[in-house]
């Protein structure tokens, strides 16, 4: 292998790793959104749920050291992770309750949850940390990475399997890419998955067939909240190790776009999420060249619009548009 191919291979491997990292949060949220969407309850609140999880993960992990002193160090980030999931599930429950019990429109209520998340995280950030921007002053931990040993001799393989510096990939990256087939299996092969699709397809018929429609919808929304929470935890305890105000930066909405782009199938959603991850990597790479940063920031949304238009071109007109 010549030096040039080797360095090219290294570059490709570096980019692949960067794409994996950028895809993970979008993929988590998109899978959650896909499951609730197929159950007939579109979850517009993914963005806010990620933000809530990202915030409470950092805060709980930092404060756990004083709440439960004396535990081994690796436990604290996991306490943060559990707290993050609990907080996001609570917010999802609020959404589900208002929609399913009080008859609130799901889309508007979802937007309300996003506003709640944006406000509550900054409000608590200011109250707890005394800074409206980020938790940079706190020393917050990350969840562990998994290092695959024995590939040190092959630099490109080492880069692919263990990332930059050979530290290994974050545990949630593995979980995200495992969640995709798991979600597909749940929807296609299990009884509960069939119930979910039945409820999404025709709730009246499902109810007549004896499926507990409301319970299935609660379950689907909560599952989407759980997955979005994992995406948020990855952002603040993996991708970065701090919380910033509005750190999700539209990833929850990209996840929604990924569902539509992926034609509401797990494989398609995975591909679309990867595409969006790649577009953000492309944007940061271009940021190194001399173009205004504003143009760089325009690339991912422009890319999303083009992708949506391209897929929609084949799917037809307004008559068969999304059911809302």
């Amino acid at each position: 292998m010549s030096v040039e191919t080797a360095s090219l291979g290294m570059l490709v491997a570096t980019i692949v790793v960067a794409v994996l990292r950028a895809t993970t949060p979008i993929l988590f949220a998109a899978l959650g959104g896909l499951i609730s969407d197929l159950t007939g309850s579109i979850n517009v609140a993914l963005e806010g749920l990620m933000l809530i999880a990202a915030f409470f993960g950092v805060i709980a992990a930092v404060h756990a050291t004083s709440w439960f002193p004396g535990l081994p160090g690796w436990v604290y980030p996991w306490i943060g992770c559990i707290a993050a999931i609990a907080a996001a599930l609570l917010a999802t429950l609020l959404l589900a309750f208002f929609h399913l019990e009080l008859g609130a429109d799901l889309i508007v209520a979802g937007i309300a949850i996003n506003i709640l998340a944006a406000g509550l995280t900054v409000f608590l950030l200011a109250s707890i940390v005394g800074d409206k921007g980020s938790t940079a002053g706190l020393h917050s931990p990350a969840l562990p990475s998994i290092r695959i040993p024995g590939v040190d001799q092959f630099p490109i393989l080492d880069m692919l399997l263990n990332g930059e510096g050979g530290r290994g990939h974050h545990v949630l990256i593995y979980l995200a890419f495992a969640a995709a087939p798991a979600g597909a299996f749940l929807l296609a092969r299990t009884r509960y998955g069939m119930w979910m699709r039945a409820v999404g397809e025709n709730p009246q018929a499902a109810a007549v067939a004896g499926i507990p429609v409301k319970r299935v919808r609660y379950a689907a929304l909560l599952l989407s909240g759980l997955l979005a929470a994992l995406g948020g935890v990855y952002l603040s305890m993996g991708y970065l190790t701090l919380f910033q105000a509005d750190m999700t930066a539209g990833r929850g909405f990209l996840a929604l776009a990924a569902i539509f782009l992926g034609a509401r199938r797990p494989i398609g959603t995975l591909a679309a999420a990867t595409l969006f991850g790649a577009s953000s990597v492309l944007a940061t790479r271009l940021g190194a060249i001399d173009i205004p940063t504003q143009v760089v920031y325009m690339i991912p949304p422009l890319f999303t619009l083009c992708a949506l238009a391209f897929v929609g071109r084949r799917r037809g007109s307004l008559q068969r548009a999304a059911p809302f």
């Binding site: 517009v44 889309i107 539209g250 909405f253 929604l256 776009a257 539509f260 920031y297 325009m298 991912p300 949304p301 422009l302 999303t304 619009l305 949506l308 238009a309 391209f310 897929v311 929609g312 071109r313 799917r315 037809g316 007109s317 307004l318 068969r320 548009a321 999304a322």
Partner: peptide
């Protein structure tokens, strides 16, 4: 975008906002 390509308007308007 919605009429021609049935693109969800929540997603498109948010993307257009960023642009």
């Amino acid at each position: 975008l919605k009429a021609r390509y049935s693109a969800n308007e929540i997603v498109t308007t948010l993307m257009l906002n960023v642009i």
